[in-house]
Amino acid sequence: MSALPLNSQNLPYPDPLHPIIVHFVIAMVFFSFFCDVLGYFTRNVRLFEVSFWNMFVAAIAIFIAIIFGQFEAGLAQAQKAAQSTLNYHTVLGWSLGAIVAAIAAWRFVIRNRSPRKVPPAYLGAATLLVCLVFLQVYLGSKLFWVYGLHVEPVVQAMKQGVSP
């Protein structure tokens, strides 16, 4: 059984898929939060429905992002300096998967019990979620822009034994 051939980015497919999927999740979580806050102040019930569906889809998509993130992290030739950031990003990613799923479930209960409003406690939890997502974005950006995970010149240098 032979291994899949890896390209110049150390991947078996043309480009990293984790960032593509995760940006979709980030946008959906932020848009869900925005719709809930706006709906809370304007009392527009349609915004609550938009918020629910965005969080619902984000709760599914985040696990797809995590799976691709784990796969691509396993293929990355991470420098020792990047390892702690990668570990923290991984733990926070799995934690966010659980948190987004829990918040989506809570949002589902709210939608069924009182579809015309969201409680302030939910908005507080969603605010915390948004803050954690910002932290995760920072960590992921650091892995790409500082440590060059799956960036072609860095991958090529590491293959030649040069550690940037």
Score class of each variant (00 low, 15 high):
Q70Y: 10
A98M: 11
F63M: 02
A101E: 04
L92A: 10
R113N: 14
F63R: 11
A81D: 14
G69P: 07
F71M: 03
I103K: 05
A104L: 10
G97S: 01
N87D: 14
A78V: 12
A82H: 04
Q70V: 15
T90P: 03
L86F: 09
P115K: 08
S114V: 11
S114M: 12
I62V: 15
R107N: 15
N112G: 00
R111S: 12
F108P: 00
A102W: 05
G69A: 03
E72H: 11
T85L: 10
A82F: 02
V91Q: 08
L92V: 07
W94P: 00
I67H: 05
L96C: 06
A78T: 14
G97L: 03
T85V: 15
Q79C: 00
A65D: 05
I110N: 11
Y88M: 11
A82L: 05
N112W: 13
W94G: 08
Y88T: 15
S84F: 10
A101C: 07
I62Q: 07
A73F: 12
I103L: 15
A73S: 13
E72L: 08
I62F: 04
S84M: 13
V109M: 03
I66P: 05
F63K: 04
W94S: 01
E72I: 09
A76K: 10
G93E: 09
A104G: 08
N87R: 09
I99D: 02
N112D: 11
I103T: 12
L92E: 10
S84R: 12
A104P: 06
Q77G: 12
S84E: 14
G69Y: 06
H89S: 06
A81K: 11
Q83G: 01
G69L: 08
L86G: 05
F71W: 10
I103P: 00
V91T: 05
I62P: 01
V109P: 01
I99Q: 01
A81Q: 11
F108A: 15
V109F: 12
V100M: 06
W106H: 11
H89Q: 05
G74T: 10
F71Y: 14
S84L: 13
A101I: 08
I64Y: 07
Q77E: 15
R113Y: 03
V91P: 00
I99K: 02
L86Q: 14
V91H: 11
A98D: 01
G97H: 00
Q70M: 13
A78K: 13
Y88C: 06
I67M: 09
K80I: 11
I62M: 07
A65P: 04
T90N: 11
Q79G: 06
G97K: 01
L86D: 01
W94A: 02
R107P: 07
A81T: 11
L96N: 10
I103V: 08
I62S: 07
S95E: 01
S114R: 15
L92P: 02
G74I: 14
A73G: 13
I64H: 06
I103G: 00
G97D: 02
A98C: 04
T90E: 08
V91C: 00
S95K: 05
H89W: 09
R111C: 00
I62N: 13
A65M: 02
K80Y: 06
I110A: 02
Q77W: 02
L96S: 02
A76Y: 04
